[in-house]
């Protein structure tokens, strides 16, 4: 037997484009508790389209929590109230019948709203382009495991590399700071031998671009870590701080 449907009141942010002023619009929905949050929005959009209304724009791609596309702020929490999941992994059984749910886009100067719940996160790409890579020579693929990596370094680098670049850290931070994201990228390269040659130039270049894009500064509230769908640790921010101070005070590389 199908589970009893939930009656919910949604208050969804609607905004025509990046230049217009948005506002919340109320929608009453009936949804199965087995539906995911995005399926509920899909159903609502089907209804809106059937009525010749403008559907709600939101982003999604893989719908299995690994692509980092589906960022929504639900009742004040990026990716909803549950820990360590993306919006697509949130199911309606976690809400109570009759509940009011506020749905907002990620809010940051560096993440301007494109339309409704969709924001422009290309700032993250610009930060990565500034240094979130390693330079390698072309040619035949190197033999696997030819460079020894200690197990603890490999594990820690992998934990940092679990970052899906969704931007929930920016959305959660009261200062809209991108430091958890940037530090995760700096750490997953900086912990491995392949990342060493560019380690201290990388941190300077990425932070320069991060600052230029208008992200805020970290005040160590650790909201980012609490809301991160992948559980990225703020120890990465400490590592980034270390690397940056070291780069600025001791590195002989030309000015960035």
């Amino acid at each position: 037997m199908e589970a009893k449907k939930l009656n919910l009141k949604l208050k969804i942010w609607r905004q025509k484009n990046s230049n217009s002023v948005g506002s919340f619009v109320d929608y009453d929905v009936q949804v199965s508790p087995d539906a995911s949050f995005l399926e509920m929005l899909d159903e609502l959009n089907n209804r809106l389209e059937a009525n010749n209304e403008e559907p709600i724009v939101f982003e999604s791609d893989c719908r299995e929590g690994i692509c980092g596309t589906c960022g929504l702020v639900i009742n004040g929490h990026p990716h909803g109230p549950l820990p360590k999941i993306a919006t697509c992994q949130l199911h309606m059984r976690n809400f109570k019948d009759g509940e009011t749910i506020w749905v907002e886009p990620f809010r940051a100067k560096a993440f301007p709203v494109i339309k409704d719940l969709m924001v422009d996160r290309s700032g993250f790409d610009k930060i990565l382009q500034a240094g979130g890579y390693i330079s390698v020579n072309t040619g035949g693929a190197p033999d696997a495991n030819s460079i020894p990596v200690p197990k603890d370094a490999a594990s820690e680098a992998f934990d940092a590399a679990a970052c899906i670049g969704c931007g929930a850290c920016v959305a959660a931070c009261k200062n809209a700071s991108a430091m958890l994201f940037v530090s995760a990228k700096i750490s997953h390269l900086g912990l491995l031998p392949q990342g060493q040659p560019e380690r201290y130039i990388r941190v300077q270049r990425m932070i320069k671009v991060m600052d230029e894009l208008g992200f805020g500064s970290c005040t160590n509230t650790y909201a980012c870590e609490a809301e991160c769908p992948k559980g990225i640790s703020v120890t990465n921010i400490a590592r980034m701080n270390r690397d940056y101070v070291r780069a600025k005070f001791t590195s002989k590389i030309a000015e960035v």
């Binding site: 702020v73 809209a176 208008g214």
Partner: peptide, 28 residues
Amino acid sequence: RLWLENKQARPVTYKVNGSPENTTLFSR
């Protein structure tokens, strides 16, 4: 200076703020 700059980093604020649940009162 940091406070002013950090305010500017989020020109439109959230209607519902989850920070009481994910940060300490002291840090906020």
